[in-house]
Amino acid sequence: MSRMELTDIIKEENLVLKKSALLTDNVMHYCPGCTHGVVHKLIAEVIEELGIQEQTIGISPVGCSVFAYNYIDIDWAEAAHGRAPALATAIRRLHPEKYVFTYQGDGDLASIGCAEIMHACNRGENIVVIFINNAIYGMTGGQMAPTTLLGQVTATTPYGRDAKLNGFPMKITELLAQLDGTCYVTRQTADTPAAVRKTKNAIKKAFQNTRLDKGVSFVEVVGTCNSGWKMTPVDANKWMHEHMFEKYPLGDIKDI
């Protein structure tokens, strides 16, 4: 293969995939291989494809993704820890013409923000909730989260999570699916190209649902935290395949 032929291929008219125009030039602070980067990209692509850049307001959480507002070029608000659904409720009620979404990790949504998400879902607010579940507290250094699997080693469960001592992994997505205020509850992942495409479709559907006054659209993305899990990004994806999907099966849980 000569260099001439490569330059034939690399031309503007042959471009099939490039960075979304909504993603800023800021380098993401996430660790190499972090699922947050993929989901940020998908949200940016969905907003770009729907043409709703000026109508979208995101709520960033506390956790690794606290700086989400630095990376996607839309309007953002920053909520107190776990209170993103409450803030999203207020913004959506005051601006009913806007698309409002929260972006939360498992520490933010399933732990400290458990009451907020429960009641926002129960009220049936017309918002999108993107929930990143990596079974660990990433930002604070890899402590046990409510979603940590039984036997999983973290900084605060050095001998593995023990149900007698630490309780059971919390399937918050299944809990929320039982509430009448949710219209679309799904669990996806983002490790393979096929999974990334499915997740993008789920996020797109969730954004479109907010126009239909049907209630909360909840998209869980099972992700990796390779730094917290003490693995390489590739090994973390393998570990997720082997362990996470047994407890957190993929697919739509509710779609009405």
């Binding site: 291929i9 031309k11 490039k18 993603l23 980067g37 993929v38 990334v196």
Partner: peptide, 25 residues
């Protein structure tokens, strides 16, 4: 191995930092 590339964009889809642009002809 640039000769083997088929432009399927799998790499770009999974890239967390969106650093890959894909061309296909």
């Amino acid at each position: 191995n640039p000769e083997a590339c088929i432009g399927c964009a799998s790499c770009g889809l999974v890239c967390p930092d969106s650093v890959i642009s894909v061309y296909k002809k």
